[in-house]
Design a protein around this nucleic acid. Structure first.
Lengths: 196, 196, 196, 196
DNA sequence: GATGAATGAGCTTTCATTCAT
DNA sequence: AATGAATGAAAGCTCATTCAT
């Protein structure tokens, strides 16, 4: 009686891995890399202490994997929007709305943890460099410049302005906590810094 | 027959304490509470490991003291501005300029570390609550409402708007790093989100 | 699917805990609370340094637990004897014999360490107060008084006399070391201070 | 104006040294060798932390010196009595009385600390061996044997009996604490274990 | 000589990681 | 595959000792 075939086992493995990653993302986001104990992740995921090591070589590697995923997803979203139809202002609003989602909070927090803690595995450094501000800004640059040319956006160095704009969104996402009772603003509020 | 008199000793102690705090502020800001080893602070300050413990009971207490100071200074600055003469827009610009100073970066980072790491001594929690968003906003509220009434500022819940505005400034301060090459924006750029 | 069932694990844990306590009792008795390094206990017990902390929160707590147990056992023994049949002299002899056992040595040493070292966790203080001389004497008081009334014992304040008697036994237990070559005296030798 | 001549300086030095030893004896007696911090001795003696090191090479050496003195004095006392006139019982009473002095308490406690803590500088070991039970008993042995021969004392191995007797006195001295409210017994109470 | 600030070795404790079951 | 007991390296903290004044 072979209990499960190869494929089913693989699927189970994937589910387990996802379960651990999900828990880890949450805990790392709140407590940071070194403020997080493996036992916290294990208990958040509802598995035993040792199990994570069947799926991830080390705490650092688990962290790196989460960071990589977060950056990839963010990058994909930016590229996706940059390929859509619409006026520059509409596209910027779309991006802003996409970022200002409650669900994204853990991603912002996670990346912030990664950026802030300089005590971080070398691998994370490399991932952060790979997805540097420069790289992330790229897909939007032409849109933004176009917006400046047709007079929708304010003047100034487009890279700088976009970078600051992302910093602003990031700030909102990091500071807004449920307990404060202030929710997230809508995109139109933020977009005002860039449009004329 | 002590070789140094009481006054000289006191001064020496004050200097040492300040020296350690200065180093600690920097290291804590970059590495977070638990990412910071006491040895890092000691070597940053150029003293031995044990010395910090003559001036601070524990790593946690040192952290708390820094957070308290940072919050106090921020609060004082807000109150100071709120007592100045000027139109609401001028005052808001003044505050924004005051916050957007390169020197303030460590304070923002430090407070962010305190807010983000939930694994934090209970004392820090209390300090953060004491200087909650609510409390920090207070000195500015009447100015802001006045600005709304005379049509300088956009409409909406003043608390929310101010909270978001601070979040924006915070985001800028946290994300802007020398290495990126983008400097800090000037106050006029940010203020646009609030003025009509 | 834990490899061992709950019951087996519980038993394993109990054994380990006992193993560590056994080692700790011996080492604490000889070296005192602060003369004992956790590494000494660990190596005496044949386990790693960290393991003790799965079973005891701290060195102090381990010490406290041992003291508590020692006091409880002593108290139980006194109560047990006080409920037996026999003349006062017989009962006193029984108690004396019970105390003068080679095996009890570590208990006496341990309690002496607790009493002598005034630098001792507050909890130990409380335990020692709970099992104060007063409390320990109580179960024997009526026996002793009875012995005085029927003329078996010498006259005098029964509490004082009993207290001194215990001090005498304690002294014997503490001073007699194998290396000296003098063994423990038998009960009849000591009992002479109390009987007419 | 030479402030003090050679002799006066020496005397001052001696006084200081005695002052520190006096404080150290008390603190060591209560807290044990390793439970005592040099700062405790310093503050008990009312001098600065560093001063002890002008008079004693190290904490251990200070401890050793105190132990040596205690043993010497005890030995001298025993020898002195052994040279007095009187019946064996009278001499034994004299010794007992001499030992049962409130002032002697710190000596007993100190020696107990030295004996109990096996974590003790090698030098202490040697001192304790030099003043072993054997050696201390010697001056009294002939008295005791004489007492047995003339029927004053109980029969048995004289060394053993004397050793036990000292253990008993030691027990009394160690256990009796002011707080318990039981004072020290008089010599006649203890002597009963040895006389017929 | 005297002080007390400064040092750093060493101990307690934590926790990532391993491993027997 | 999964568990959780066990390990041991590393961090926080203490305190004997030194040293500048």
């Amino acid at each position: 009686m072979p209990p499960l075939n190869e494929e089913q086992l693989d699927q189970l493995r994937d589910e387990r891995k996802e379960q651990i990653k999900y828990a880890a993302r949450k805990v790392f986001a709140c407590y940071g890399l070194c403020g997080t104990k493996m036992s916290m992740i294990a208990s958040e995921a509802g598995v035993s202490q040792g199990l994570s090591y069947r799926y991830f070589k080390s705490k650092d590697e688990l962290f790196v994997e989460l960071i990589e995923e977060a950056m990839e997803e963010a990058m994909d979203a930016l590229i996706y929007v940059s390929e859509q139809q619409g006026t520059p202002t509409e596209l910027l609003a779309m991006i802003t709305e996409g970022m200002l989602e409650e669900n994204n909070k853990y991603y912002f927090m996670l990346v912030q943890q990664a950026r802030t803690s300089e005590y971080i595995p070398e691998k994370v450094q490399r991932v952060l460099e790979q997805y540097s501000s420069e790289a992330m800004l790229k897909p939007l640059l032409s849109i933004f410049i176009q917006g400046q040319q047709n007079g929708e956006f304010i003047e100034g160095d487009p890279k700088k302005l976009l970078f600051w704009y992302f910093a602003i969104i990031s700030g909102i996402m990091l500071q807004v906590q449920e307990i404060d009772g202030f929710g997230l603003p809508d995109a139109q509020f933020l977009i005002r810094v860039l449009i004329k």
